[in-house]
Design a protein around this nucleic acid. Sequence first.
DNA 1: GCCAACGTTGGC
DNA 2: GCCAACGTTGGC
Length: 149
Amino acid sequence: MAYWLFKTEPETFSIDDLAKKDTIWEGVRNYQARNFLRDGVKEGDEVFIYHSSCKRVGIAGIGRVTRAGFADPFAFDPDSRYFDPKSSPDKPIWYAAELTFVRRLPLLSLAELKANPALAELALVKKGSRLSVMPVSSAQWRSILAMAE
DNA sequence: GCCAACGTTGGC
DNA sequence: GCCAACGTTGGC
C-alpha cells in the first residue's frame, strides 16, 4: 500500500465534505500530478488531505482510495469547468481517483510540517512546489502521524 | 490583494 | 527548440 497527499481548497472541498460523502477527486490538470493519479494511486492507498489557500493551511485528515486509475469524467463534460475537448474516453488525458473518509487529524500546519527535518524531502515543503497530488513515503507518513499524536 | 514561482502557449 | 508572454497556484 502506498501513501499520498492531495491538496484541496477547503472552501471548495474540505475534509468535512469528505466525511459526509465519498468523492471523485477530479479536475487535476497538471501532468506530474496526472501521472501519479494514472500510474501510482491504487485502491486501498491512504491519503493525507491538505487544505490550501485558506486561513489555516495544513493537513486536516486522512482518506482512503476506493477506486483509482480511471479517466476524469469531468474532462468529457462540456458544462464542467474541467472540460477538456482534447480528452476523450478513447484517449483520456486526465485521470481521477475516488476517496472515502477515514478520519480527521488535529490540523498540522504547513509551518509545523516545514519545521520537521524528517519531512525535508516531502514535495509539499519544497520551495515553489505546486504539486496537488504527491507521493508520501511510509517514513514520512509515520512522521506526520507522530506529529498528530 | 500581492506577488513569487512555476507551467503552458505560441510566435519565430 | 528558444523564450517571452501569459495564466495559475498558493503562501502570506
